[in-house]
Design a protein around this nucleic acid. Structure first.
Lengths: 332, 332
DNA sequence: GACGAGACTGCCAACGTTTGCAGCAAGAGT
DNA sequence: ACTCTTGCTGCAAACGTTGGCAGTCTCGTC
């Protein structure tokens, strides 16, 4: 069905090798025949067979991307930037969604590993030892997690958290409640630690509720717990939880941004759709994706050389919107 | 690096053909040797090379999915269900995002067509003639669009629209404003027509604003236009526009659900995150995805037989939430 | 005019898998 | 004892591409 090298070769009265060279290594072939071949190839609509090429080169020109939940608005921007960067470099992207199902993470990654040259894993909960093993089999870059023996792109929440805590204090808050993400999530630990450090530094009292799944429904549950706690300020593990909290609180007649302050993390596109809009710690999703691709392609290029796996650290900052306001008991 | 058939064969003292048969066509080989081969293969961690297999079979066991915008919350559920169904059937899914860029749609689809067995296109704006041509090259299923010579899964908005119009009338509304989607979008035309039909039937006055891109920002712009029109009810092309409208109206101090009623289409997960929650016409996204996969795999199985391309039509219904309420001038 | 260099090009093997065909042994039927 | 069948296995070709090697041709040089 598809046009092959042989057909182009026949049409040009040359051998397949010449056609192959003309199209992939133009300097190696006479300028005149090359242009002729190029013309005929275009005319016939020739496109190299990935399978044939893969077989001999051992490469697939495809990278895999594993995310916990495409529906979580934090990920689409990352996916987009991964795809964009990959496309620039002539790579395709195979995406797998684990549906927040920890057990599937590894299985999916392994399945993918057979049809890709490298993997980008944004799956925070699998056992580190397994991940290290996986990283030995093929190049892997982790997003938002550090794993021994593999490159990673991580978010440094400390700056954003510090700003958030300062922000709350300047509004007169004296305590804050952390709405935790999944217990075994690497980034949950990072965020909790960053918050704890910032609180300790600035003298803000910290409580914790949870864990909650990063989903709006869980946020709603968190809202009710939050109300029975005595905190007028909350920082959520991510925007989804924060949005669920806001939605539920508003539904119950509370004024978010006046009676209670809510801060999210990720600064996903949804932050601006609610009223009040969500104050959130901005995470540079686009950079995250493209940095991950760059790191991975570096590893692919190095080949067998032992490159010390790099960690790229991305800064965060607070974006203040309407969901945070003066503490209720504080003087106006 | 990877374990090949030949290595398994050597370890078992049989030929590669026997190993191949043992693993793909177990009946053709002696039970005893088969179990031995299976054991050794597992031990060695053998996994068939997709490239080798593709080369001889001509199939890739991969399907392509083109969507206009992963970040649009309407699509993730579809993507998930496509992936889930495909995975059940041992297919991988290659996703491409056109970023709402019409010119890229075809190019991306063509690029994908070389590495997949079939395509699912949820890209509403490309020229029909081009799409028909594409459908001649390989099996294609269209989502939310009918194209000659290809299968499709479409949404039948009429029922949902009818319910929406009845709903508005029962609340005392006498006119409604349609916030149109992209002019060349097939589903925009479907939705507009369905709305017009429903309005004509029930005697509701219809106006139209737009077109607007299916994005929150565009919805905000729509909100301001809507305010200067004199309609107390609006039905948007999709939830994103509706959410943008709500967000902007609320920001400008209007009470959505009291002073003005807003209805979205898609019933995306976001519908429940705002306050008030968004009344929306529910579209069965999961069914949409799995139906598309089923249709495509049917086409793949049929092979060269001329199957009359099928169109699957999915019903919609109205989900009433807080964003719609009694018309302001109507008696209470 | 012979020779070597250089520029192109063709031949062929290899990648890993599947599959039609042939070969082989063992058992059944005569 | 002979053939025929049956069940199993190996051989070899094919899929489309790449790249090492060798061959051809032309041209410049001595």
């Amino acid at each position: 069905m598809a046009v092959t090298l042989a057909e182009v070769a026949a049409a040009c009265n040359v051998s397949t090798s010449t056609v192959s060279r003309a199209l992939t290594d133009p300097d190696k072939v006479n300028a005149e025949t090359r242009t002729r071949i190029e013309r005929v190839a275009r005319q016939l609509g020739y496109a190299p067979s990935r399978a044939g090429r893969s077989l001999v080169s051992g490469r697939t020109d495809t990278i895999g991307l594993v995310v916990p939940d495409i529906a979580n608005p934090f990920f689409p921007p990352i996916i987009k930037s991964v795809q964009a960067r990959a496309r620039d470099k002539r790579y395709s992207v195979l995406i797998a969604d684990t549906d927040e199902h920890v057990a599937d993470e590894l299985e999916l990654a392994r399945g993918l590993s057979r049809q890709v040259d490298g993997l980008i894993l944004a799956s925070p909960r699998t056992d580190p030892a397994e991940l290290t093993r996986l990283a030995k089999q093929l190049p892997v870059v982790f997003v938002n997690r550090e794993v021994e023996g593999a490159g990673s792109v991580v978010i440094d929440e400390s700056e954003g958290m510090s700003e958030a805590v300062e922000h709350l204090m300047s509004l007169g808050h004296t305590r804050v409640c952390y709405l935790a993400g999944p217990r075994r999530s690497w980034s949950n630990q990072q965020r909790r630690d960053a918050l704890a450090a910032a609180c300790a530094e600035h003298g803000l009292e910290l409580r914790e509720l949870g864990p909650f799944e990063p989903q709006i429904q869980a946020g709603m549950r968190a809202a009710d717990l939050l109300q029975s706690a005595e905190s007028a300020a909350a920082i959520a593990y991510d925007d989804l939880i924060a949005l669920g909290v806001m939605s539920r609180l508003t539904e119950r007649g509370m004024q978010v941004g006046r009676e209670i302050s809510v801060i999210g993390i990720d600064d996903s596109p949804l932050s601006t759709v609610t009223h009040p809009m969500l104050t959130s710690i901005h995470v540079p999703a686009a950079e995250l994706g493209s940095a991950a691709v760059d790191l991975l392609l570096d590893q692919l290029r190095e080949g067998e050389d032992f490159t010390t796996p790099t960690t790229v650290r991305l800064e965060t900052r607070l974006v203040i919107r309407g969901s945070t306001g003066v503490a209720p008991t504080a003087p106006r």
